[in-house]
Structures are given as C-alpha cells and as structure tokens.
Simulated assay, not measured.
Amino acid sequence: MPQTPEPQSYTLPPTAPFTNHGRTKAAWVLMWGVCLGFLLTALGLMLSQMVVIIIGVVLAVGSVVVSLVMRGMGLGQPSPVTVGQDGRDWYSA
C-alpha cells in the first residue's frame, strides 16, 4: 500500500535572489587591493626591502577597510531577507 505524502504549503521568497553573484564594486576593490598588497609584500620579501613590505601590508589591510566602508554605503551585496513571518526560512519544511 503506497503512502500518501503529507501536503506541504510552501511560500515563495519575498524577492528573487541577487543576479550579480557577488560581483559588486566593494568586492572588486577588496579583491584587487588584497592581490596587489600581497604581490607587493612578496616582492618586498624577495628584495628584503622593509618599506615595500609595509606598503604591501598597508595596501591589503586598507583595501579591506575601504571595501567595508563601500558595503556600508550600499555598493556591496545587500543582506538577503529569507525569514518569513513565522520565523522559518522559506525553504524549510
């Protein structure tokens, strides 16, 4: 005798998911800043130049700060709203 599954009452999420896949201005600043900072730091380590190492570290840390500020200004990925009125996620059973 086959079992009849219980009926589920799903509701759709309030909005569609973001289509930018995280490719925002704040993310690009973070990625390029950290890459250039680590590149300068590695170059400074190879050349044994403390000034270049410090500049690379400052650039990497500074890009993290600038990216966080840009996200706060609304240039980053917004936080998704996935919790419904009853406190459950839209996809939970």
Rank of each mutant, 00 (worst) to 15 (best):
K25C: 05
V34D: 00
L43F: 13
G62I: 10
N20P: 00
G74C: 10
W32K: 03
G84D: 12
S92V: 15
Q77K: 10
S79C: 05
G33E: 11
F18L: 10
T15V: 12
I53T: 13
A27M: 08
L39F: 12
G76K: 00
P2Y: 09
P5V: 11
A93E: 15
G22P: 03
G84S: 11
A26E: 06
P78Y: 05
G72V: 01
P78C: 04
T24F: 05
V61E: 07
W32S: 08
L12T: 12
V64W: 10
A27V: 02
M1P: 12
R23W: 05
Q8W: 01
E6T: 14
G87A: 09
G22D: 12
V57S: 10
E6C: 01
S9I: 15
I54P: 00
L47P: 00
L36G: 13
L47D: 08
Q77R: 10
P80N: 14
P2G: 06
N20C: 03
G74N: 04
L40G: 13
L45V: 13
G62Y: 01
P7C: 02
V61Q: 09
A16T: 14
R23E: 01
G87I: 06
V69M: 04
L30F: 05
I54K: 12
P78V: 14
S63F: 04
L59M: 15
L39R: 00
M73L: 15
S92W: 06
T19R: 13
G56S: 10
I53V: 15
Y91M: 11
T15D: 11
V51F: 11
R88V: 09
S92Q: 15
V57A: 14
K25S: 06
P13L: 07
L43I: 15
I54N: 13
L75R: 09
M1I: 06
L40A: 15
Y91W: 15
